[in-house]
Design a protein around this nucleic acid. Structure first.
Lengths: 205, 205
DNA sequence: TCATCAATAGATCAATCGTTCTAGAGCGGG
DNA sequence: CCCGCTCTAGAACGATTGATCTATTGATGA
């Protein structure tokens, strides 16, 4: 409620259009850049051009802000990854679909991804547990698919979990160094090279 | 000075043996776990069992503590990487020596590595510049060696810099998930699998 | 023996932190 | 018209922050 009634504010702004959403948008920017502990409520209020108490009108406390970011982004990631491989036939094709899906989805969550694997131990025990659960969930998806590769004889020898972690390393690192502005064929090329790296490494076996 | 004269304290402690060094040791622990902004001077003082002003006796300010950690660890990394490949013949052998050397050296800098690629934008402009310079330095070493692979026809097609970034992703990610306690043949196996991943990916080309 | 000085603790500073309180403005339904 | 609601600002709270000041200890060297 309180959102459905808004017929008044036909604000043509890019995305926010909502006081609460605009605050989340600013918060994720600052949290990703300076970290959770490094960002004060007043920092967010200043950027938003509103008062501190306004933020507390929408969010119970600072961590609720963090949680709102989580809910609109990373929370859905495991489900989206499962969607990406749903119905795909063949272990190699499934794995490729998984990695591609992951790179595509998180493209829009770049700041959030950075936030979440940077601030690990900095939250309340509850927040920490949530964070860890999702990360474990994602890892298990990769382990399952890589297990499929192994059964098909498509996997280099070694531990399955380590292979999954290495894969996630390449993906998450990509989110760190790649620039958000990139789009179109240029981006497709880069994503393709990351995928190729995961499949065959630098090349010299 | 102030250190050379110390013949008195033959403290048999594990590592510290020096008030200043003990503080650096504790600081790197806390910075890696909670981040720079998330760790207060009092946190460090409490763990060390000393007073706040004692810390300020050794360090001008909080960032000087960060800088001391940098100076005894990551600062030397580019030089150590260059050492690791010095005199090695053959582009493939050089690249392998580089990755292995990197994994070996940073094994002892696990916390520091985490600290430095987590706290990016959280420092003064000066600290930020130092951080970025080292990271660029390391990247250039990888680019040069991968360029060597390319000339020898040992590289998969694609951009050299992206290949270097992917490689660093696997390495830095390893530092995140691997446990410090591991040693001996078990660790060698894991390191080997990370190297193999960098060379040939998960296996299914 | 005494002056010096590194090393320590404790009190204290102004600033900032997360958070709460009070209150006004604008709007809709009765 | 006024009641109640959402949205907003500003002042203020106690706690914590990075940093400083003052003072005491104990050892070293003259």
């Amino acid at each position: 409620m309180a959102r459905v009634v808004s017929l008044k504010k036909a604000k043509s702004a890019a995305v926010p259009a909502d006081g609460r959403e605009e605050l989340v948008e600013i918060a994720v920017d600052l949290f990703a850049a300076r970290g959770f502990a490094g960002t004060s409520i007043r920092d967010i209020a200043d950027v938003a051009g509103r008062s501190v108490s306004n933020i507390y009108h929408y969010f119970e406390n600072k961590e609720a802000l963090w949680f709102a970011i989580f809910e609109r982004s990373i929370k859905a990631l495991p489900g989206q990854l499962r969607e990406a491989i749903e119905g795909v036939e063949g272990p190699r094709e499934r794995f490729i679909a998984l990695v591609r899906g992951h790179l595509d989805v998180t493209e829009h969550y770049r700041r959030e991804a950075k936030m979440f694997f940077i601030d690990e131990e900095r939250l309340s025990p509850a927040g920490n547990r949530i964070n860890k659960r999702v990360q474990r969930d994602i890892l298990s998806i990769y382990v399952a698919e890589i297990e499929g590769l192994r059964r098909a004889g498509l996997l280099a020898p070694g531990d399955t979990q380590i292979a999954a972690l290495n894969t996630l390393g390449a993906i998450n690192w990509y989110l760190r160094w790649s620039r958000a502005g990139m789009s179109g064929p240029k981006r497709a090329e880069v994503v393709d090279q990351v995928l190729q790296f995961i499949l065959r490494g630098v090349g010299c076996a």
